[in-house]
């Protein structure tokens, strides 16, 4: 029998631009979303640069030793995983409105097909009170 108990929603605060952390956020978000779990991701600080529109992979993902391995082995692309999570599950991705403001970025500066809309941290934290909260 499948487990019919609704899981607590998963809220991921993604601040780091390190490839390894962006990759883990994408893996967690996509797998949880396709497993009947509501997921919301709030992208801020250096992490927002990984979502820049039209960036080459080398510029998009910067990290340490494991980042090189992920690239060499052609691990699933983090942005593709976010897209799949949205397409196949209940995944919402928010762009930090403060980050966009200080960068003078609009939604058009971000990779298409991933973000729902800009959101403030206060609203995200309020929504996250009833869920499981992960910071990367």
């Amino acid at each position: 029998m499948p487990d019919q108990t609704p899981d607590r929603p998963l809220y991921i605060l993604l601040c780091s631009g390190e490839h390894e952390k962006v990759q883990m956020a994408a893996m967690m978000a996509s797998v949880a979303a396709v497993s009947n779990r509501a997921v919301e991701v709030f992208v801020s600080m250096n992490a927002i640069f990984a979502f820049r529109k039209d960036a080459a992979a080398d510029q998009r993902y910067r990290g340490g030793d494991f980042s090189k391995i992920l690239k060499d082995k052609k691990a699933p692309d983090a942005l593709t995983l976010f897209e799949q999570g949205k397409e196949l599950g209940d995944l919402k991705v928010w762009a930090c409105s403060m980050a966009l403001d200080v960068l003078h970025w609009e939604m058009e500066n971000l990779a298409p097909g991933i973000f729902n809309e800009p959101l403030g941290l206060t609203k995200f934290l309020s929504d996250a009170e009833q869920g499981q909260f992960v910071t990367l």
């Binding site: 893996m27 797998v31 691990a75 699933p76 995983l81 799949q84 196949l88």
Partner: peptide, 16 residues
């Protein structure tokens, strides 16, 4: 040849 969670995601996309 695909790494986690690639095979799972490919399967779910096909199941749809």
């Amino acid at each position: 040849g695909a790494f986690c969670p690639g095979p799972l995601m490919e399967m779910i996309a096909a199941l749809k």
